[in-house]
């Protein structure tokens, strides 16, 4: 009795969470432009999606920005986390709390302040400023993820490596990097997805010449939802599903240790 109640309850929770996505995926195969009635199965919207030049361009722009921003943020963030752990310097605690603050601060504040900053130093908004902005808001997530793992380390491991003849670089490459790898991958994935679907910060920091997918969709839906958008959303949902699965297996391998 209690078991079946629990099952029903859980089913409702998942229905609530996933039904809209399911509906969206189904409608991406619906053979009609405006109606919400089912008019038969079609791949038409997918075809239209992949042949829509401006939309695909925005999609690739988004991928490029997401890849570059997440990679740069991962490298910088990992090094920052290692520095926070490894070296005792003046203002370390304060600096670390500022990283947290950046993570908590509203996107709109960050978007406007970055725009003002770019205008102030005379940087023309476009792909480059967008990249800088994305690196900025991804960075704290990497630092926090990597630092969380690194602070769980046995500090003696570093001393042991030195004791066995490793210099600072060898210690970092052979000991710290492999031990941090799951956190680095997680931080990167997080950055990548954050960058890929960001609207608010991007809205302020990109220029008219450089369009990215979330902004493009945003401007498209203002004229009504085209089934093409449904198809695009379905593709992106599939992509994130794959990413989450990959991430799950990477972290699972780690927790076995």
């Amino acid at each position: 009795m209690r078991k079946s109640l629990r099952f029903i309850y859980l089913s409702f929770v998942y229905l609530f969470l996933y039904a809209p996505i399911l509906v969206l995926v189904i409608y991406s195969f619906n053979n009609t432009k405006y109606s919400t009635n089912w008019q038969g199965f079609t791949f038409k919207w997918y075809n239209e999606l992949f042949t829509d030049g401006p939309l695909m361009e925005a999609f690739f722009n988004s991928l490029i920005i997401a890849f570059s921003a997440s990679i740069v943020a991962t490298i910088l963030g990992t090094l920052a986390a290692v520095a926070f752990y490894r070296y005792k310097f003046w203002g370390r605690q304060v600096m670390y709390s500022f990283i947290y603050m950046l993570m908590m601060s509203p996107d709109i504040v960050m978007g406007i302040s970055l725009l003002m900053f770019f205008v102030m130093i005379g940087l023309k908004t476009g792909a480059f400023t967008l990249l800088l902005a994305h690196i900025t808001f991804c960075l704290p997530f990497v630092v926090v993820t990597v630092y969380a793992r690194i602070s769980g380390f046995d500090r003696n491991v570093i001393d042991v490596a030195k004791d066995l003849g490793a210099n600072e670089l060898q210690m970092f490459l052979h000991i710290m990097m492999p031990m941090l790898m799951p956190a680095i991958v997680a931080g990167w994935l997080l950055s990548f997805t954050l960058s890929l679907d960001d609207v608010i910060v991007s809205f302020f920091t990109t220029g008219p010449a450089f369009e990215i997918l979330p902004l493009k969709i945003y401007s498209m839906v203002r004229l009504g939802i085209k089934p093409e958008i449904n198809a695009l959303s379905a593709v992106m949902f599939l992509l994130s599903l794959v990413t989450v699965t990959v991430a799950h297996f990477i972290t699972k391998e780690e927790t076995n240790r």
């Binding site: 046995d154 003696n156 491991v157 030195k162 004791d163 003849g165 031990m179």
Partner: peptide, 16 residues
């Protein structure tokens, strides 16, 4: 430490 001809065994073992 990496240039000294001594080695240490730690209380926590600190295996990699």
């Amino acid at each position: 430490p990496n240039k000294r001809n001594v080695n240490t065994v730690f209380q926590s073992y600190a295996l990699f």
